[in-house]
Computed example of a mutant assay.
Amino acid sequence: MGGHRRAILITGASAGIGAALARECAGRGYDLILTARREGPLQALAQELARQHGVTADIVVADLAEPGAPVALVEAIAVRGLRADGLINNAGFSRTTGFLATDPADHASMIRVMLTAPVELSRLLLPGMIERGWGRVLNVASLAGQMPATGGDTLYGPIKSFLIKASQGLWLETQGTGVHVTALCPGYTYTEFHDVNGSREQVSSAYPKWMWMDADRVARIGWEAVEANRPRVTPGVANNVLAALGGLLPDALALKMVGGHAKRLDRL
């Protein structure tokens, strides 16, 4: 683990905001414990971080959709003699085909990956952080968690709302312990995923440019916020305006405002 250097465990680290956060932490001198379902991308990222930043990046392949995966992950880390001084709960996915058109097994996986796993990993790792007097927990939520619900990706926003509230509660409970807890609430974010599958132009056309941010910038804002012990951060002025509007508008108007969300994405 690189001697006395602190290590950050990142879930869903193989691509997107997770990979950007890994690069951000490595650039600040943290060692990494990277986990995701795909070993190839994890290996490539670990080698990149070690080469560019001189940090140690260990990988643990895990599928957080499997019951018991958080406990198995923490045990695998301990068996290797590693220690997670920080935790970034980033793993997640969405199903936009509608509540009734989505396989219930997919809904169950969403809940385990995006809600149950962050809760379990936080409960497993926070005692050690508090005992050592230092820790960082960054929960990657979403602007969607601060906005009215949308049809299509019916569970995504509510799950992210839960994550924001849970983060705020943990922030209150960990005051004075040396542990910082933050909910990161990005809006639409460009990642390499859009470049790899050739969809960047299409997703860009669904919403105006001012609604989009780069993953590297989102990662930097998120990590700066958790270092500063802010309970929540929403990157981008426009996203903060949207979040404020979402909380102020009457339900009927707010739901009408977001009503076309899934339809626009379905047309891509």
Rank of each mutant, 00 (worst) to 15 (best):
D63Y: 09
P118C: 07
H4W: 00
P158K: 02
G18P: 05
G152Y: 03
G247K: 15
A254H: 12
I59V: 14
E227P: 07
R232M: 15
A78E: 11
G86N: 09
M257N: 13
A78K: 08
G2A: 13
S109M: 12
G86R: 06
I59N: 04
L115F: 10
P70I: 05
I77W: 00
A101M: 04
A44C: 01
W171Y: 13
L73N: 07
A166K: 07
A78I: 00
A69V: 10
S142P: 12
L73S: 07
R6D: 01
S142L: 12
V79M: 04
V181R: 03
I130N: 07
R80H: 05
M257E: 13
E24V: 02
H107F: 12
L42F: 06
G133A: 09
A149R: 11
L155K: 05
T174Q: 06
N90S: 04
V113S: 11
L100C: 09
F193S: 01
S161R: 14
R38E: 06
V137T: 10
L49W: 02
L184M: 03
G86S: 08
V241Y: 14
G29M: 02
G3D: 11
Q47A: 11
T154G: 03
A243C: 14
V218D: 09
P208W: 08
Q52I: 00
I88L: 09
T177S: 14
L82Q: 09
D266Y: 00
W134V: 09
H261R: 11
T177L: 02
L242G: 12
A166Q: 12
G18V: 04
P127C: 13
D31R: 05
V241A: 15
W171E: 00
A7G: 01
